[in-house]
Nucleic acid binder design. Structure first.
Lengths: 81, 81
DNA sequence: CGTCATTAGGGTAATTTGGGTA
DNA sequence: CCTGTCCAAATTACCCTAATGA
């Protein structure tokens, strides 16, 4: 069950979007690998406000995949010397 | 229909045929997906009292969707360009 | 009645945080 | 200004078996 549709005993019907599709997140290590930098550097970007973060209840950071990919795509553009 | 139909901003559709509202619950796997952590980590949060839990008669944990979403939003930081 | 994915447990690696420094 | 590294403490991930849920 992926939490798409639930029917309570009282007849309540709840349709919930797939949690996976709501907001794909990346770990610090994954972002670091994508940018070919140290995870610590990614943390500094987050601290500086260059990257938005979602925190786990334990304080670890998670990064939005869409935002990271967008930043990566921008950097991949060829620049004229 | 005698029921009440509500559509949340996140797309969740709730049809309640009775004035009594039933709280939507999430499985450990769903909460883990939303936070991008292991399901066992969600269990640790519950043990530590950081998440309120609803137990099935068999001992499995269920989590309140509203609480999970509010915790996710709380840690969000906006990007400063 | 079985079937199979998920969860609860517990234990042990791996990762992340934060500060300070190069 | 930006990045990599060392450190200790905290958090999270992965391993297993047995039980629960759908």
């Amino acid at each position: 069950m992926k939490g798409i549709k639930t029917i309570a005993s009282d007849g309540t019907i709840t349709i919930t979007p797939d949690p996976v599709a709501i907001e794909p997140l990346l770990t610090p290590a994954e972002v670091a690998t994508m940018f070919r930098v140290d995870p610590k550097t990614v943390t500094r970007w987050a601290k500086a406000g260059r990257l938005s973060t979602v925190r786990t209840l334990g304080g670890h950071r998670r990064y939005r995949e869409a935002e990271v990919r967008s930043l990566l795509a921008f950097g991949e553009q060829k620049r004229v010397q």
